[in-house]
Design a protein around this nucleic acid. Sequence first.
DNA 1: GGTCAACCGGAGAGGTTCTCCGTATCGTAG
DNA 2: CTACGATACGGAGAACCTCTCCGGTTGACC
Lengths: 209, 209
Amino acid sequence: MTTEYGSGAAPAVPPRRLDARLNRERLVAAAREVFAEAGPGASLNEIARRAGVGPGTLYRHFPDRTDLLTAVLRDRIETLCARAEHLLDARDADDALRRWLHDFLDHARANQGMGGALLVETASAAGDPDCRRRIVDAASGLLDRARRDGTARADVTVDDLVHLVVGIALSTTGGERAGPEPPRLLELVLDAVFGGPRPGRGPRPGSPG
Amino acid sequence: MTTEYGSGAAPAVPPRRLDARLNRERLVAAAREVFAEAGPGASLNEIARRAGVGPGTLYRHFPDRTDLLTAVLRDRIETLCARAEHLLDARDADDALRRWLHDFLDHARANQGMGGALLVETASAAGDPDCRRRIVDAASGLLDRARRDGTARADVTVDDLVHLVVGIALSTTGGERAGPEPPRLLELVLDAVFGGPRPGRGPRPGSPG
DNA sequence: GGTCAACCGGAGAGGTTCTCCGTATCGTAG
DNA sequence: CTACGATACGGAGAACCTCTCCGGTTGACC
């Protein structure tokens, strides 16, 4: 599904050379490793070294750090959006939104919060606006339906939800100190979104899977 | 109130030299400026330069970046804790907690999120455990009272609240893209804490007091 | 096989964090 | 007032990072 270049229009650009494509893959693979080990602030030099290429090669393929980050997370984003579309057909609109937000939380926490960092930092111009766009579109569909067919409050926006989930991801990642379980915090937020906590049921995810 | 060294035990340590104390103050002042301009990731070299001291002097006084951060925020933390104690006497327990959490949110957002960064990153061993400790103590008092005399849910912990507020601060800071208003998000969370949204009342600080 | 554009790699500029140690200064004792 | 020792200063410098530039190499096509 990851079309390397535009699909519809005339490909005035010839396909990239084989070694270039190979190096790109090597870089993404190395980045996946290194980011997972050292977090989103990892040394790009180290990534280039581990990929077996020079720093120049890395920067030619990925001028910005966030470019590399999005490349690493692209699969995950695809999955997330696909799951959103799938959940649009679920019977329970509230539950669909709830489940997807849990998935999104997992995404935002992936690789020491780089998903969240990406979503927030590169939100506007830098990096890949397409990335945020897709997430927001996916969430919009689910939220709209939860408002219509479910019990979601009308005054809560997609932006609210995204920021809250990203916030949970950011504030619970990195610290070696064991904080609250992220899904627990999300459930707490969802209690507000869906009109408050059911009595006798704590902010506990009854396993959304 | 800021006792420079321990108060009770025998002061085996003589008071610091005058120039040392002076340089420390200069460094904190410079750090306040530079952090405000460039955020919590600002160059420590630049801070030393602006304070008119060498890098070595900076690192002797503040071995860790977070040490400098806590020193800069100490006043603010004092104020925050004092306000918590003051609010313990307020009539409306719920409102007291609500107000204080808004103050805390302001704190966490101060200086481009360095308050929040500090609270989360240095949460455990590094930096000043005393700092987090005081915040948590302050919040504990207010939350306990809101549970007893107010309507706060019993299953929400101080840690939950701290992480949620810090999360809001982190996810709404830095991006040049205008997101949701942080206080709005906090009100949304509070709706859950206080038993869900009243019908017809959005996530707005209607100030029930 | 030859040609050329595309691509690679690494040297290097300029930034950062943090350390080390000779030197200057403070505070005090004489 | 002076001399002395502990304390603190400051900047040189090592190690690292990001990012650029350009000579040399290599893949793709004729």
